[in-house]
Amino acid sequence: MSGELLRVTRLSKRFGGFVALDNVSLSVRAGERLGLIGPNGSGKTTLITCISGALYNDVGEIHFEGRDVTRLLPHLRARAGIARSFQIPKPFASMTVLDNLRVPLEYAARSRAAHGRVLDEAMRVLELIGLVHRAHENSAGLTQVDMRKLELARALAAKPRLLISDEVMAGLAPNEVAEVLAILRKLNNSGITIIMIEHIMHAVMRFSERVICLDAGQIICEGTPESIVQDAGVQRAYLGA
């Protein structure tokens, strides 16, 4: 369980004159629960977008399970076992909730899915997330909360080894946050490595084994949740002191 799953080496990404990521290096163990925090615009989403492949980094390398995936196309990374949810939900709006899950099951997880059981598997994921009662509804008509759950469900349906959740808990009620945390914990117990981006501090701190804080495209601090809370740099980045 202690092998390295993901290694990011000296990653940089700029948009025109704006430096979104500046020389970021990090390593994630297989089975780890990593929290990624930082103020808005600090580069969290850019970092995971580079890891999942929708953006290519300018400088640096990304290794997944020891394999260099820096230039690998995003759909091949999904097949290799990297899945993410989107901060702003991107449902396949013309499809039902169930069909939304069929897409990753039939593509990303194709080699790992039991053939002919796609619908069963999709229902199982919906059951886990608590969306079964919406299975046959059109995904465009979901509430914000259900759409966030769908994001998580669709990422899970890709049967990832690494799950990156990008603010899936934003806007959820406290009991729903607890519910999602329990789901993520359960997934982690089954062997899935999880990187969690979250603004709800107590949730990240409760969930993560290790936390990394980004500010202005750089890692300013890394450590256990307890040490992060006390870090002066983190407090400055968040409180602007």
Partner: peptide, 24 residues
């Protein structure tokens, strides 16, 4: 078919489709 669902995923959201493993 599976291909049709892949195409619909591309139409609905190409980035999300790629992240779901669809070879767009």
């Amino acid at each position: 078919s599976r291909i049709g669902r892949g195409l619909a995923a591309i139409r609905d959201d190409e980035v999300a489709a790629e992240c779901a493993g669809v070879p767009t």
